[in-house]
């Protein structure tokens, strides 16, 4: 795609530590334009986090086989190493997590961590100037009494405030792409809404491209322009939020949307379900990975992994029966 800020092509990630390689990501294509938000939706183990970590090259080199290409802001991510890779992380692409302590260091104050991040990436910024920027960031993520909070340690903050501090740190060096790995999953409902609104606002103001990983469709609908549904290491459906929510075309997406206990309408009646459970990534079937659970599956589904079928307006589905399951 021309004009994309991030472009992933045929990404394949296999972990080779065990007897049989685990094929966690199995041919992912995804491109984002500046300022665009894509929700990457999928069940546990579908490869969402592995996809995100690949973009920052966070996988252990010796036990991971990684193929395909990733280009972010014109930088060939696969070719990076050493100082260039360290500079790329945080400055071009930055990441936030479900567990803020993955990003925050318990032994330094929040202010020290943010100023350190700024000065590491931008030589020539004085300590005073960096501190001023850190204060601005804390105000921006709406941490109350920001001046005092800069001198706090991470454990001194409540869950929601820690999440805000992590966002401030991730934005410290003005990245162009933000990777968000379930940043609101562990939060309480009333706090989750606050953080979602904050992220949406910051993303717009800073024109950030964002991949937002979640297993909650409702969260995806709140933040994203497009939704990509992942199943067993592949994006099986992608499209504008409205199209995917209102007219899902992959049997897995259709199942996921109907299986939710939502509103009072289903109360006490049996829920529609998807039978079975996701496949073992160490012994994936040759065909469509969803076939064993799919009520529309035929023998043709077992032969080869389905290619993406374009349905128009960027809505694409990996299912050979797409025309039939409309």
């Amino acid at each position: 795609m021309t004009g994309s800020i991030l472009e992933i092509r045929d990404l394949r990630v296999a972990f080779t530590g065990a007897a049989k390689p685990v094929r966690a990501v199995d041919g992912v294509d995804l491109a984002l334009v500046p300022g665009e938000v894509v929700a990457l939706l999928g069940e546990s183990g579908s490869g969402k986090s592995v996809t995100l970590r690949s973009i920052l090259r966070l996988h252990p080199e010796n036990k991971t086989r990684i193929e395909g290409s990733i280009v972010a802001a014109g930088i060939d991510v696969m070719a990076l190493s050493g100082a260039a890779l360290a500079d790329f992380r945080g400055k071009t692409v930055s990441m936030i997590f479900q567990e803020p302590m993955l990003a925050l260091d318990p032994v330094y104050t929040l202010g020290a961590q943010i100023t350190e991040a700024i000065r590491k990436h931008e030589s020539g910024v004085s300590a005073d100037a960096a501190r001023k920027r850190a204060l601005g960031l804390f105000e921006r993520v709406r941490i109350p009494s920001p001046e005092r909070r800069l001198d706090s340690y991470p454990h001194e903050l409540s869950g929601g405030m820690r999440q805000r501090a992590m966002i401030a740190l991730a934005l410290a060096c003005n990245p162009k792409v933000l990777l968000a790995d379930e940043p609101t999953t562990a939060l309480d409902a009333t706090v989750q809404v606050q953080i979602l609104l904050l992220l949406r606002e910051l993303q717009r103001e800073l024109d950030l491209a964002m991949i937002f990983v979640t297993h909650d469709i409702g969260v995806g609908v709140e933040v994203a322009d497009r939704i990509a549904v992942m199943y067993a290491g592949r994006i099986v459906e992608i499209g504008a939020v409205r199209d995917v929510i209102r007219a899902p075309r992959h049997p897995y997406t259709i199942g996921l949307l109907s299986t939710r206990a939502q509103g009072g309408r289903l109360s006490g009646k049996r829920l529609p379900t998807i039978t079975g459970s996701p496949p073992d990534l160490a012994s994936l079937p040759p065909g469509c990975a969803f076939a064993p659970r799919c009520s529309s599956a035929t023998s043709a589904c077992l032969e080869a992994a389905p290619a993406a079928v374009e349905l128009g307006h960027g809505h694409a589905v990996r299912c050979i029966h797409t025309a039939a399951v409309a």
Binding site: T190, V193, L197, G218, V221, I245
Partner: peptide, 13 residues
């Protein structure tokens, strides 16, 4: 705080 699941009725506050 419940999310609407409706892209035309996103939470505003």
């Amino acid at each position: 705080s419940l999310l609407s699941m409706d892209p035309d009725r996103r939470t505003v506050a």
